[in-house]
Write a protein that binds this DNA or RNA. Structure first.
Length: 650
RNA sequence: AGCGGGGUAGGGUAGCCAGGUCCAUCCCGCCGGGCUCAUAACCCGGAGAUCGGAGGUUCAAAUCCUCCCCCCGCUACCA
């Protein structure tokens, strides 16, 4: 059996953060290193995704051309991966000759097989920017709920919108008004592949259950896929002046980058007996479990994915990560202060891969110091120092002569090896690491029971320490995929090879391999993170305004006279507010903070001259003011003592 | 709104698909004791859980069914 491991192509408009590391790269690298360690034929292929409009936008913002942006972030991303200890056999770019050719050949084959057709469609065109605008680059008002909508999707009510349903559309680049123009687009007949996809998914034995469920659900309603874009940055569609939609060409990168290795690529993509594992983040599960296999089926020659391993999301200190709000920890900043192997350990240990989990600095410190170091670090260290002091080398004894309790620990080693194998091969990286931790606990317990420090009989002492060293060697071997650097450092002290044998070699002078995490560094990192957040929100950064600006806002006191829930919304309540001379209906996003009945009678501050809008289909003629803190607590603004409804606020 | 995942002791997590072996696993934390080879580390023992809520099926439910609540994500260009 041959294994091809791929990791999601990183998008070259920013470096990697801890979320990328946890959901995709670290698990994949563990799988890769493990299979390699077991002597399997395995390669890891990855790279960066360089096309699509966001790159051109970033380029414009930074006053550079797209190639420069791509180059910059491609290199940064690769450096981040190196820092994490993630290894690749091939790491490519989608903006490269080999990929562009491969993607075009792929496309032509789809066409030849009858899966591509042309259709004239109408699309937004921005006369100002002189370009057609892909969906996401037009914003406007949702015709159903009056909320803000982007392209074909309303952010507020979540409806899918037909093109041009959008009211008051504007171009996100120049804010100008786009016009509608006709253009010829190419479509991929995804809908024709329903039966084949269903059969594929149902028979994909190693595909995780939740991925299967999602995929099967998705194919119930498959749309054909508009795969052309009227922009210039991308893989040109042969014979046109358009480029391919990135989700058509990017996954082909898995093939193109394998080609970087020469003819062996054929073994992985064309010959049977290959397992293909795609490691991705959960947001792109459908692309990998439905669209990509659909493309491969339509193409007809390549192996299909054996499994799509979709990693859960990582929150930071209990809150959603956000690069724009600077609520993020970048890989390169993290590894400046802490060992990458500690990160690998922590991110795997925190939760099973498919689940979301949280990264917190305090928890990181606790888990590393109290679990990894106290249990595993301490066991390996006490065994090596003690053995070194007594014998200077690993004593080799005849295993047949060992006592029951020795044999029991050695048996536990064997069992752990088996359990780890089973768990890693079924993507249960955390479970396997727990198996390893348990072996170290058993080791400590054995050491304690045997009391080698009190054993006078040298032969017996050799037996005990042989058993301990064998256990340490097993730990080093099994830990290698998780913590390669630490594992190799221990191996160095043992003067050993990366396998399960003991050679009786002379031990190097022991030193501490697993150093505890420094509180100061934790505090530094936390401080930096929280300060970023303050800066972002802080008043200093805001532009100063003239008092006349304030006069433009009509603020008045209003009394809530009716309040009811808007059932189909997540956050909205409908309020009727008395403003003295009139009553107004106002929709407010405070569901969950206030019960409708508690609001009635409250005096609130209302922005009266706000442009009316429909939210979730309900008209809102104003806005009530509320304060919100870091923890997401919300409080309505009200008046200090009773005052007439309709009073002006100034 | 639809879909996917999740809600189990202070935190994390196993068990759930194939109901009894579960007065519920493991790791951290907490409490008590022991040890001294070891990074104030280690070992032994203990306390701590209405298994999100309400019904139902069953001799038997954390596990199956129904309804509800809460958290996260996706919905086609953010791991």
């Amino acid at each position: 059996m041959r294994y091809l491991i791929t990791t999601a192509l990183a998008y070259t408009n920013g470096p990697l953060h801890l979320g990328h590391a946890r959901s995709t790269y670290i698990p994949a690298d563990i799988m890769y290193k493990y299979l390699k360690l077991r002597g399997e034929e395995v390669i890891h292929v990855g790279g960066t995704d360089n096309h699509g409009v966001p790159i051109t936008l970033t380029a414009e913002k930074e006053g550079k051309n797209p190639e420069e942006i791509v180059e910059k972030y491609h290199n940064e991303i690769k450096e981040d991966l190196d820092l994490l200890g993630v290894e690749f056999d091939a790491f490519g770019k989608t903006h490269s000759q080999i990929h562009i050719e491969t993607a075009q050949e792929f496309y032509l084959k789809l066409k030849e097989n009858g899966y591509i057709y042309e259709k004239e469609i109408e699309q937004f065109y921005c006369p100002n920017c002189k370009k057609f605008l892909p969906d996401r680059y037009v914003e406007g008002i949702c015709p159903y709920c009056g909320g803000e909508a982007r392209g074909d999707h309303c952010e507020v009510c979540g409806r899918h919108l037909e093109p041009f349903e959008l009211k008051e559309p504007y171009c996100v680049i120049c804010k100008g008004k786009p016009e509608i123009r006709k253009t010829k687009h190419y479509f991929f007949k995804l809908s024709a592949l329903k039966d084949e996809l269903e059969e594929y998914i149902k028979n994909a034995e190693e595909m995780p259950e939740h991925v299967k469920n999602m995929a099967l659900n998705w194919i119930k309603e498959l749309h054909d896929w508009d795969i052309s874009r009227d922009i210039s940055w991308g893989v040109p569609i042969p014979g046109t002046n358009q480029v391919m939609y990135v989700w058509l060409e990017a996954p082909i990168g898995y093939i193109s980058f394998t080609k970087m290795l020469g003819d062996v690529w054929k073994k992985y993509w064309l010959e049977k007996d290959t397992k293909i594992y795609h490691f991705i983040g959960k947001d792109i599960t459908v692309h990998h479990a439905v669209f990509w296999p659909g493309m491969l089926i339509a193409h007809g020659s390549f192996n299909l994915p054996t499994a799509v391993i979709s990693g859960g999301y990582l929150t930071l200190e209990g809150r959603k990560m956000s690069t724009s709000k600077k609520w993020v920890v970048w890989v390169k900043d993290f590894v400046k202060n802490f060992d990458a192997d500690y990160l690998r350990y922590y991110l795997v240990m925190s939760a099973p891969l498919f689940k979301d989990c949280d990264f917190s600095f305090d928890d990181f410190k606790n888990k590393i110091n109290n679990e990894l170091i106290n249990i595993i670090g301490n066991f390996t260290h006490r065994v090596l120092t003690f053995t070194h002091r007594k014998f200077k080398k690993v004593p080799i004894v005849d295993e047949g002569r060992l006592k029951e309790e020795d044999k029991e620990l050695l048996k536990k080693c064997e069992e752990t090896i088996k359990a780890v194998d089973k768990n890693i091969r079924s993507f249960k990286f955390r479970d396997a690491l727990v198996n390893i931790l348990h072996l170290a606990i058993e080791g400590n317990s054995y050491f304690q029971k045997m009391e080698p420090w009190a054993v006078k009989d040298e032969e017996r002492l050799k037996e005990i320490l042989y058993t301990c060293c064998k256990t340490v060697k097993t730990l080093i071997y099994l830990l290698y995929p998780y913590m390669p650097k630490k594992s190799l450092a221990l191996l160095e002290l043992m003067n050993e090879e990366l396998d399960l044998n003991l050679r009786g070699n002379e031990l190097k002078k022991p030193k501490i391999i697993f150093k505890k995490i420094d509180d100061k560094k934790i505090e530094e990192m936390k401080k930096k993170l929280y300060e970023n957040r303050k800066e972002e929100k802080g008043g200093k950064e805001m532009e100063q305004i003239d008092i006349s600006y304030l006069e433009k806002i009509d603020l008045r006191v209003g009394e809530v006279i009716e309040a009811e829930d808007i059932p189909k919304s997540k956050k909205l309540l409908k309020l009727i507010v008395d403003l003295g001379d009139e009553k107004r209906q106002i929709v407010s996003g405070i569901k969950g903070y206030y019960k409708p009945e508690d609001l009635v009678g409250k005096k609130v501050i209302v922005v009266c001259n706000l442009k009316p809008a429909k939210l979730c289909g309900v008209l809102s003629e104003g806005m009530i003011l509320a304060a919100e803190d870091d923890e997401g607590n919300l409080a309505l603004l009200t008046v200090d003592k009773d005052i007439k409804a309709g009073s002006k606020v100034r």
